[in-house]
Amino acid sequence: MTAAMTLTPNQTETLVRKLTALADDEIILAHRDGEWTGHAPILEEDIALANIAQDELGHAGMYLELRRELDGSDPDRLAFFRDVDGFTNVRLVELPKGDWAFTMLRQYLFDAYEALWLDAARASTYAPLTEVAAKAVREEKFHLQHTALWVERLALGTDESHRRTQNALNELWPYTAQLFQPVQDEEGLVEAGILPDLAGVRGRWEALVVPHLTQKCGLMLPAASAAAAAGRDTHTEHLAPLLAEMQSVARAVPNAEVW
Protein backbone atom coordinates (compact mmCIF):
# COMPACT_ATOMS: atom_id res chain seq x y z
CA MET A 1 0.00 0.00 0.00
CA THR A 2 1.28 3.46 -0.84
CA ALA A 3 -0.26 4.94 2.30
CA ALA A 4 1.78 2.60 4.48
CA MET A 5 5.00 3.71 2.83
CA THR A 6 4.68 7.22 4.22
CA LEU A 7 4.80 5.90 7.80
CA THR A 8 7.98 5.30 9.80
CA PRO A 9 8.36 1.86 11.42
CA ASN A 10 7.54 3.32 14.82
CA GLN A 11 4.48 5.10 13.42
CA THR A 12 3.32 1.88 11.81
CA GLU A 13 3.71 -0.01 15.06
CA THR A 14 1.79 2.63 16.98
CA LEU A 15 -0.96 2.80 14.37
CA VAL A 16 -1.34 -0.98 14.48
CA ARG A 17 -1.67 -0.72 18.27
CA LYS A 18 -4.29 2.03 18.00
CA LEU A 19 -6.34 0.32 15.26
CA THR A 20 -6.39 -2.88 17.32
CA ALA A 21 -7.58 -1.00 20.40
CA LEU A 22 -10.33 0.71 18.38
CA ALA A 23 -11.41 -2.62 16.88
CA ASP A 24 -11.35 -4.44 20.21
CA ASP A 25 -13.69 -1.87 21.77
CA GLU A 26 -16.15 -2.46 18.93
CA ILE A 27 -15.90 -6.26 18.95
CA ILE A 28 -16.57 -6.53 22.66
CA LEU A 29 -19.31 -3.89 22.74
CA ALA A 30 -21.06 -5.52 19.75
CA HIS A 31 -20.85 -8.84 21.57
CA ARG A 32 -22.59 -7.43 24.64
CA ASP A 33 -25.25 -5.77 22.46
CA GLY A 34 -25.74 -9.00 20.52
CA GLU A 35 -26.64 -10.75 23.78
CA TRP A 36 -29.91 -8.79 23.70
CA THR A 37 -30.99 -9.98 20.23
CA GLY A 38 -34.26 -11.83 20.80
CA HIS A 39 -34.53 -10.67 24.42
CA ALA A 40 -35.13 -6.91 24.21
CA PRO A 41 -37.98 -5.17 26.10
CA ILE A 42 -39.90 -4.51 22.86
CA LEU A 43 -39.67 -6.03 19.41
CA GLU A 44 -38.69 -2.66 17.92
CA GLU A 45 -35.55 -2.70 20.09
CA ASP A 46 -34.62 -6.22 19.06
CA ILE A 47 -34.38 -4.60 15.65
CA ALA A 48 -32.68 -1.33 16.62
CA LEU A 49 -30.01 -2.71 18.94
CA ALA A 50 -29.23 -5.51 16.47
CA ASN A 51 -28.60 -2.79 13.94
CA ILE A 52 -26.22 -0.98 16.25
CA ALA A 53 -24.37 -4.23 16.98
CA GLN A 54 -23.95 -4.88 13.25
CA ASP A 55 -22.60 -1.38 12.70
CA GLU A 56 -20.07 -1.75 15.53
CA LEU A 57 -18.91 -5.08 14.09
CA GLY A 58 -18.62 -3.39 10.72
CA HIS A 59 -16.40 -0.70 12.23
CA ALA A 60 -14.23 -3.35 13.87
CA GLY A 61 -13.86 -5.00 10.48
CA MET A 62 -12.83 -1.71 8.87
CA TYR A 63 -10.18 -0.98 11.52
CA LEU A 64 -8.80 -4.50 11.23
CA GLU A 65 -8.68 -4.19 7.45
CA LEU A 66 -6.58 -1.04 7.90
CA ARG A 67 -4.35 -3.04 10.21
CA ARG A 68 -4.12 -5.83 7.63
CA GLU A 69 -2.84 -3.29 5.10
CA LEU A 70 -0.06 -2.41 7.54
CA ASP A 71 1.03 -5.83 8.84
CA GLY A 72 -0.84 -8.47 6.86
CA SER A 73 -2.67 -9.79 9.94
CA ASP A 74 -5.96 -11.66 9.54
CA PRO A 75 -8.92 -9.96 11.28
CA ASP A 76 -10.61 -13.22 12.28
CA ARG A 77 -7.39 -14.69 13.71
CA LEU A 78 -7.10 -11.55 15.82
CA ALA A 79 -10.70 -11.66 16.99
CA PHE A 80 -10.97 -15.37 17.69
CA PHE A 81 -7.49 -16.57 18.61
CA ARG A 82 -6.13 -13.94 21.01
CA ASP A 83 -6.43 -14.57 24.75
CA VAL A 84 -7.52 -12.11 27.42
CA ASP A 85 -4.05 -10.61 27.79
CA GLY A 86 -3.92 -9.90 24.05
CA PHE A 87 -7.20 -7.94 23.99
CA THR A 88 -6.90 -4.18 24.33
CA ASN A 89 -10.50 -3.03 24.69
CA VAL A 90 -11.48 -0.57 27.43
CA ARG A 91 -13.05 -2.11 30.51
CA LEU A 92 -16.26 -0.11 29.95
CA VAL A 93 -17.35 -2.37 27.08
CA GLU A 94 -16.63 -5.73 28.69
CA LEU A 95 -18.89 -5.22 31.73
CA PRO A 96 -21.90 -7.58 31.60
CA LYS A 97 -24.90 -6.20 29.74
CA GLY A 98 -26.87 -5.50 32.94
CA ASP A 99 -30.39 -4.16 32.57
CA TRP A 100 -31.75 -2.06 29.71
CA ALA A 101 -30.71 1.19 31.45
CA PHE A 102 -27.14 -0.05 31.78
CA THR A 103 -26.97 -1.16 28.15
CA MET A 104 -28.48 2.04 26.76
CA LEU A 105 -26.39 4.33 28.94
CA ARG A 106 -23.15 2.52 28.13
CA GLN A 107 -23.99 2.62 24.44
CA TYR A 108 -24.79 6.33 24.70
CA LEU A 109 -21.52 7.18 26.45
CA PHE A 110 -19.58 5.15 23.91
CA ASP A 111 -21.50 6.45 20.89
CA ALA A 112 -20.86 10.04 21.94
CA TYR A 113 -17.15 9.32 22.25
CA GLU A 114 -17.00 7.39 18.99
CA ALA A 115 -19.00 9.93 17.00
CA LEU A 116 -16.70 12.74 18.17
CA TRP A 117 -13.53 10.74 17.69
CA LEU A 118 -14.57 9.79 14.15
CA ASP A 119 -15.61 13.34 13.40
CA ALA A 120 -12.10 14.46 14.33
CA ALA A 121 -10.51 11.53 12.48
CA ARG A 122 -12.06 12.74 9.22
CA ALA A 123 -9.26 15.33 9.23
CA SER A 124 -6.55 12.66 9.48
CA THR A 125 -3.55 12.97 7.17
CA TYR A 126 -3.69 9.18 6.76
CA ALA A 127 -6.13 8.77 3.86
CA PRO A 128 -7.32 5.19 4.62
CA LEU A 129 -8.41 6.31 8.10
CA THR A 130 -10.14 9.41 6.73
CA GLU A 131 -12.29 7.24 4.46
CA VAL A 132 -13.28 4.86 7.24
CA ALA A 133 -14.09 7.73 9.58
CA ALA A 134 -16.29 9.46 7.01
CA LYS A 135 -18.32 6.28 6.54
CA ALA A 136 -18.58 5.29 10.19
CA VAL A 137 -19.42 8.74 11.56
CA ARG A 138 -22.73 8.78 9.70
CA GLU A 139 -23.80 5.57 11.44
CA GLU A 140 -22.61 6.78 14.83
CA LYS A 141 -24.75 9.90 14.60
CA PHE A 142 -27.83 7.68 14.25
CA HIS A 143 -26.74 5.55 17.20
CA LEU A 144 -26.20 8.64 19.29
CA GLN A 145 -29.64 10.03 18.47
CA HIS A 146 -31.22 6.73 19.40
CA THR A 147 -29.34 6.13 22.66
CA ALA A 148 -29.52 9.78 23.81
CA LEU A 149 -33.30 9.56 23.55
CA TRP A 150 -33.37 6.27 25.43
CA VAL A 151 -31.31 7.71 28.29
CA GLU A 152 -33.70 10.65 28.43
CA ARG A 153 -36.81 8.43 28.37
CA LEU A 154 -35.52 6.20 31.11
CA ALA A 155 -34.17 9.01 33.30
CA LEU A 156 -37.43 10.96 33.03
CA GLY A 157 -39.82 7.97 32.85
CA THR A 158 -40.81 6.44 36.19
CA ASP A 159 -39.15 6.46 39.61
CA GLU A 160 -37.91 2.96 38.93
CA SER A 161 -36.45 3.77 35.52
CA HIS A 162 -34.80 6.88 36.95
CA ARG A 163 -33.27 4.90 39.81
CA ARG A 164 -31.97 2.24 37.43
CA THR A 165 -30.47 4.85 35.10
CA GLN A 166 -28.79 6.66 38.00
CA ASN A 167 -27.38 3.34 39.25
CA ALA A 168 -26.06 2.60 35.79
CA LEU A 169 -24.41 6.02 35.62
CA ASN A 170 -22.81 5.52 39.04
CA GLU A 171 -21.31 2.28 37.86
CA LEU A 172 -20.31 3.32 34.34
CA TRP A 173 -19.03 6.84 34.81
CA PRO A 174 -15.66 5.96 36.38
CA TYR A 175 -14.90 3.66 33.42
CA THR A 176 -15.34 6.41 30.82
CA ALA A 177 -12.01 8.13 31.57
CA GLN A 178 -10.20 5.21 29.97
CA LEU A 179 -11.72 6.05 26.58
CA PHE A 180 -9.44 9.08 26.48
CA GLN A 181 -6.25 7.35 27.51
CA PRO A 182 -3.77 7.24 24.59
CA VAL A 183 -2.01 4.03 23.59
CA GLN A 184 1.76 3.90 23.86
CA ASP A 185 3.44 6.54 21.59
CA GLU A 186 0.07 7.83 20.36
CA GLU A 187 1.24 11.45 20.78
CA GLY A 188 3.64 11.00 17.86
CA LEU A 189 0.76 10.16 15.53
CA VAL A 190 -1.25 13.08 16.89
CA GLU A 191 1.63 15.44 16.09
CA ALA A 192 1.80 14.03 12.56
CA GLY A 193 -1.92 14.71 12.15
CA ILE A 194 -2.66 10.99 11.69
CA LEU A 195 -4.80 10.61 14.83
CA PRO A 196 -7.10 13.05 16.65
CA ASP A 197 -5.94 14.56 19.92
CA LEU A 198 -7.83 12.70 22.66
CA ALA A 199 -7.78 15.65 25.04
CA GLY A 200 -9.67 17.67 22.43
CA VAL A 201 -12.16 14.83 21.88
CA ARG A 202 -12.62 14.56 25.63
CA GLY A 203 -13.44 18.27 25.93
CA ARG A 204 -16.10 18.01 23.24
CA TRP A 205 -17.43 14.78 24.75
CA GLU A 206 -17.86 16.33 28.19
CA ALA A 207 -19.53 19.38 26.66
CA LEU A 208 -22.00 17.02 24.97
CA VAL A 209 -22.76 14.34 27.56
CA VAL A 210 -22.57 16.26 30.84
CA PRO A 211 -25.40 18.72 30.05
CA HIS A 212 -27.49 15.92 28.55
CA LEU A 213 -27.13 13.72 31.61
CA THR A 214 -27.53 16.45 34.21
CA GLN A 215 -29.65 19.31 32.84
CA LYS A 216 -31.75 17.39 30.35
CA CYS A 217 -32.12 14.07 32.17
CA GLY A 218 -31.82 15.16 35.81
CA LEU A 219 -29.12 12.65 36.68
CA MET A 220 -26.27 13.25 39.14
CA LEU A 221 -22.70 12.74 38.02
CA PRO A 222 -20.78 10.60 40.47
CA ALA A 223 -17.39 11.77 41.71
CA ALA A 224 -14.44 10.91 39.49
CA SER A 225 -12.45 7.88 40.57
CA ALA A 226 -9.14 6.26 39.86
CA ALA A 227 -10.71 3.30 38.02
CA ALA A 228 -9.16 4.44 34.73
CA ALA A 229 -5.57 4.42 35.92
CA ALA A 230 -4.71 0.99 34.54
CA GLY A 231 -4.07 0.59 30.82
CA ARG A 232 -5.81 -1.38 28.07
CA ASP A 233 -3.91 -4.54 28.96
CA THR A 234 -5.78 -4.74 32.27
CA HIS A 235 -9.24 -6.28 32.33
CA THR A 236 -12.06 -7.04 34.72
CA GLU A 237 -12.97 -10.64 35.54
CA HIS A 238 -15.74 -10.41 32.91
CA LEU A 239 -13.62 -10.55 29.77
CA ALA A 240 -12.31 -14.12 30.11
CA PRO A 241 -15.74 -15.83 30.16
CA LEU A 242 -16.90 -13.56 27.32
CA LEU A 243 -13.96 -14.63 25.14
CA ALA A 244 -14.30 -18.29 26.10
CA GLU A 245 -17.83 -18.23 24.72
CA MET A 246 -17.12 -16.00 21.73
CA GLN A 247 -14.14 -18.05 20.56
CA SER A 248 -15.50 -21.52 21.34
CA VAL A 249 -16.64 -22.53 17.85
CA ALA A 250 -13.67 -21.02 16.01
CA ARG A 251 -11.20 -22.70 18.37
CA ALA A 252 -12.94 -26.08 18.25
CA VAL A 253 -11.72 -26.46 14.66
CA PRO A 254 -8.52 -24.41 14.63
CA ASN A 255 -7.40 -25.69 11.21
CA ALA A 256 -10.66 -24.79 9.46
CA GLU A 257 -9.97 -22.81 6.30
CA VAL A 258 -13.45 -21.39 6.00
CA TRP A 259 -16.37 -20.85 8.32
Partner: peptide, 29 residues
Protein backbone atom coordinates in the same frame (compact mmCIF):
# COMPACT_ATOMS: atom_id res chain seq x y z
CA UNK B 1 -35.29 -15.73 17.03
CA UNK B 2 -34.29 -17.94 19.96
CA UNK B 3 -32.77 -21.18 18.60
CA UNK B 4 -30.39 -19.38 16.24
CA UNK B 5 -29.98 -16.36 18.49
CA UNK B 6 -28.24 -18.62 21.00
CA UNK B 7 -25.32 -18.82 18.56
CA UNK B 8 -24.78 -15.08 18.06
CA UNK B 9 -22.29 -15.03 20.92
CA UNK B 10 -20.40 -17.99 19.40
CA UNK B 11 -20.36 -17.24 15.67
CA UNK B 12 -16.85 -18.16 14.46
CA UNK B 13 -16.00 -15.13 12.27
CA UNK B 14 -16.84 -11.43 12.32
CA UNK B 15 -18.73 -11.83 9.05
CA UNK B 16 -20.81 -14.79 10.28
CA UNK B 17 -21.60 -12.93 13.46
CA UNK B 18 -22.83 -9.90 11.53
CA UNK B 19 -24.91 -12.07 9.20
CA UNK B 20 -26.46 -13.98 12.08
CA UNK B 21 -27.39 -10.83 14.00
CA UNK B 22 -28.89 -9.44 10.78
CA UNK B 23 -30.85 -12.64 10.22
CA UNK B 24 -32.31 -12.75 13.72
CA UNK B 25 -33.05 -9.04 13.37
CA UNK B 26 -35.00 -9.85 10.18
CA UNK B 27 -37.08 -12.38 12.13
CA UNK B 28 -37.97 -9.62 14.61
CA UNK B 29 -38.92 -7.43 11.66
Amino acid sequence: MLPEGEWITRAPTLKRKTILIAKVQDEAG
